[in-house]
């Protein structure tokens, strides 16, 4: 008996749960979900009712209209060209932007602050928004697409690479500075060589994203296969839409396989 009492006193009470946090978080999530589902008319019933119509569409979209394929070759090639240009220009411009945004390499706080915020704002807008903007600025066509992908590439590479630059070993760069080297010499001989494999890897990754993105840029008139897709879609030529979607997927998969195998060998 005395042992039981003794034991009971050493047993700690279960600490009260943080109900405010639990109910708050659960409440937030359910409220958001309720508000969203109501706002967009999300209903499983509607989905079920529309399934027959969906089946008709799928039946109509198959088989793809293979005879249309020769007319896709030109736009597909243009799509790849847009991706290459965007990646090359964007890849070059991303170098200074990433360096200035790396805390350990930047020449001054103000530069770092402005550059970092510039980078974050670039990242907020999706690729197609840039495509719409450039299409409005320089006119419909592949040049608008290439410029949009340039901005998109800068956003992707500079963010990732500035993080790799912040992770480098500072011994060599500091030695270069100590030996009287300039800031540029420090970058060239001390900092950048260390993070070069990452740079190449991120650029290839950006190229993969760009190939993917370039396929749909044409939806807003920024060149490439997407422009064909947009005309066929708006006239409900779904057998052709299916052919375009399939060829886009195959091309994207091929490019990704190649790029991924190169990246794997790098790091």
């Amino acid at each position: 008996m005395s042992e039981a009492i003794d034991a009971a006193t050493t047993r700690p009470l279960r600490p009260a749960r943080n109900w405010v946090l639990i109910i708050g978080a659960l409440g937030m999530v359910s409220l958001m979900t309720w508000w969203s589902a109501r706002g967009i008319g999300f209903s499983i019933i509607e989905l079920a009712c529309n399934l027959p119509g969906g089946r008709r569409l799928l039946v109509e979209s198959w088989p793809p209209d293979w005879s249309f394929f020769p007319r896709l070759l030109g736009p597909l090639l243009e799509t790849l060209q847009i991706a290459v240009i965007g990646t090359v220009i964007g890849g070059i411009l991303a170098i200074p932007i990433a360096v200035l945004a790396a805390r350990n390499l930047t020449p001054g706080f103000l530069v770092w602050f402005v550059d970092r915020n510039f980078m974050n704002i670039l990242r907020t807008l999706p690729d197609l928004f840039w495509a719409m903007l450039f299409a409005a600025a320089v006119g419909f066509g592949p040049v608008a697409g290439a410029l949009a992908l340039t901005v998109f590439t800068i956003a992707v590479i500079s963010k990732l690479w500035s993080e790799s630059l912040e992770a480098i070993d500072m011994a060599v760069p500091e030695a270069v500075r100590a030996a009287g080297g300039s800031w540029l010499a420090m970058l060239q001989f001390g900092a950048i060589p260390q993070a070069l494999p990452h740079y190449v890897s991120y650029t290839l990754y950006a190229f993969e994203l760009n190939v993917r993105a370039s396929m749909i840029l044409g939806l807003v008139g920024a060149g490439g296969i997407g422009m064909v897709l947009e005309t066929q879609r708006s006239t409900f030529e779904y057998p052709r839409v299916t052919l375009i979607v399939l060829s886009v997927l195959v091309l994207v998969l091929i490019i990704e396989q190649i790029s991924e195998s190169i990246r794997r060998r790098l790091i």
């Binding site: 509607e46 529309n50 119509g53």
Partner: peptide
């Protein structure tokens, strides 16, 4: 993963009609 959202939406819009529901799917 291979399908970009927007290509899926191209198929969902005629199925469930223009609007946000197609986008969410």
């Amino acid at each position: 993963r291979a399908f970009p959202e927007i290509l899926l939406a191209i198929y969902f819009v005629p199925i469930v009609g223009l609007g946000a529901f197609a986008g969410a799917l």
